[in-house]
């Protein structure tokens, strides 16, 4: 609960700050907090991934982009009133909906009734792998993981296509600086 509150506090910082460098560093802290929350919620595999991906690789990529672009955000031209109202209404609707959800941590919630007991009971017999997450990931739901791997492959190829090769500097109206 303390961790979740800390995460909410960091989110306020992310929303308010205008220096993108600070925002990215706060994002790294946020990811580490998220990883701690995942450990508390018994998702050790997810925590490991979040700590290495969210706090490690994506922070480095964001900083690399900031190095290539610029680190200060301009003041927004529009008033943020309309987005605020939209976000507020969405939030109220979601809170109203949350009362119908099963309370946190009970063992007889619908999510624990369907396929999860099958995985937990049969994983060791079917695959000899005690870590159920691994056996579900690679064996029971192997198609999913093949698809995810293909998505990562596609994203890697797309980044290569966008950024590799010569930077074509074309003079003309497109390249002129914009007035502030």
């Amino acid at each position: 609960m303390v961790l979740l509150t800390l995460m909410a506090a960091i989110t306020v910082g992310v929303v308010r700050l205008r220096n993108l460098f600070a925002v990215v560093v706060l994002g790294g802290i946020y990811s580490f907090l998220m990883a701690s929350v995942m450990i508390v919620l018994d998702a050790v595999d997810v925590a490991m991934t979040e700590a290495s991906v969210g706090a490690g690789v994506s922070t480095v990529l964001m900083l690399g982009t900031l190095y290539l672009t610029k680190t200060e955000e301009t003041r927004p031209a529009h008033t943020p009133l309309l987005p605020l109202v939209v976000a507020g209404i969405t939030g109220i609707a979601l809170v109203y909906g949350s009362f119908a959800l099963p309370p946190f941590g009970v063992a007889d919630a619908p999510i624990h009734m369907h396929v999860a007991p099958y995985y937990l009971e049969n994983s060791l017999r079917d695959t000899l792998v005690p870590n159920v997450v691994t056996s579900v990931l690679a064996s029971y739901r192997g198609y999913d993981t093949l698809g995810e791997t293909a998505v990562i492959f596609t994203a890697g190829i797309a980044v290569l296509m966008l950024l590799k090769g010569r930077r074509d500097v074309k003079p003309g109206p497109k390249r002129k600086r914009v007035r502030r």
Binding site: L61, G64, T65, A138, T149, G156, V159, K164
Partner: peptide, 23 residues
């Protein structure tokens, strides 16, 4: 499972490195 995880490892590590190199 071991073989499939090896495939995932190769793709993920390659993609992360390649993205960093291009940036």
């Amino acid at each position: 499972i071991l073989l499939v995880e090896a495939g995932v490892f190769v793709t993920v590590s390659g993609t992360m490195t390649v993205i960093f190199y291009t940036f």
